[in-house]
């Protein structure tokens, strides 16, 4: 079953076309890699998928919790649709604790009223307690439980990356978008991340799309790859096929490379 269908998607900024006529399909449970040189439009594509930009042309359709198209996208509605993401430059809530960061991820799952929070009605205690338990369990799975009261800004870089993924998972997504999860990591951390992503897919039963430059990670875990160059989708297929694809080699190495 296809969970994401992108048809003829374009996005222009003035005269610059950051994404041009992209069409693709993502099936349930896949791990998809988006690769391409810098400035190829990968992050713009992510921003289109999460409602930060609206498409100039074309349409995005999710079939996760229910069928929704890009006309209804708003950044804050995406977690409700079953889509959560992380960012290329880590965007944690720096002055909040690790636990609070994850609690924010559960925001959509909570619904006691403002009045209930003012007057500490029973629903406040009930929901807060449940959510705290869930958050602690999640932190335990991510090996961050010891640091739950530390401020996010004081975490080591690798921990910050993991916390951001944990926060995204707290929103209970069916599709997880990871924007360069291995950026700035050393080979050992990248290897750990590879295992983590595999484990996440298995444990949380979701579809993952990731942007990544680290080929060891991409070739290792992605079942299918999409290659972007100058806003165009120039190739798609299995990792082995992509490695031999001439247009991809040209995009990365230039015209005359042989």
């Amino acid at each position: 079953m296809s969970v994401l269908k992108v048809s003829n998607l374009s996005r222009a900024f003035g005269g610059i076309k950051a994404v041009t006529d992209v069409s693709l399909n993502v099936e349930e449970g896949e791990i998809i890699g988006l690769i391409g040189p810098n400035g190829a439009g990968k992050t713009t594509f992510f921003n289109l998928l999460t409602g930060i930009y609206t498409p100039t042309e074309g349409e995005i359709e999710y079939d996760l919790n229910s069928k929704v198209t890009s006309k209804d996208f708003k950044p804050h509605k995406m977690t409700g649709f079953g889509v959560a993401r992380t960012f290329q430059n880590i965007r944690l809530f720096q002055n909040m604790t690790v636990l609070e960061n994850v609690l924010i991820g559960f925001h959509n799952g909570m619904n006691y009223s403002v009045a209930s929070s003012f007057f500490r009605l029973p629903s406040f205690y009930k929901e807060e307690e449940e959510t705290h338990d869930k958050a602690l369990k999640l932190l335990e799975k991510f090996n961050l439980i010891d640091k739950k009261d530390a401020f996010a800004r004081n975490l080591a870089y690798g921990d910050q990356r993991r916390l951001e993924i944990a926060r995204a998972l707290a929103a209970n997504p069916k599709l997880l978008l990871l924007d360069e999860p291995a950026a700035g990591m050393n080979p050992k951390e990248t290897a750990e991340l590879t295992e983590l992503i595999k484990w996440i897919r298995k444990t949380f039963d979701l579809t993952i799309i990731l942007i990544e430059h680290d080929m060891s990670l991409v070739m290792n875990i992605c079942e299918r790859l999409f290659v972007f160059d100058y806003g165009h989708l120039i190739a798609s297929g299995l990792p082995d096929e992509i490695q031999k694809n001439e247009r991809v080699i040209k995009a990365y190495l230039g015209e005359d490379a042989n």
Binding site: H76, L92, F93, Q94, N95, I104, Y112
Partner: peptide
């Protein structure tokens, strides 16, 4: 100290991330 308040603080900390986590 409620989830509404945490949502407010997260807006101060990082508005884009707050929005991506489902906060209006």
């Amino acid at each position: 100290k409620s989830y509404h308040g945490r949502a407010c603080i997260s807006i101060r900390e990082n508005e884009i991330a707050a929005e991506a986590m489902g906060i209006n």
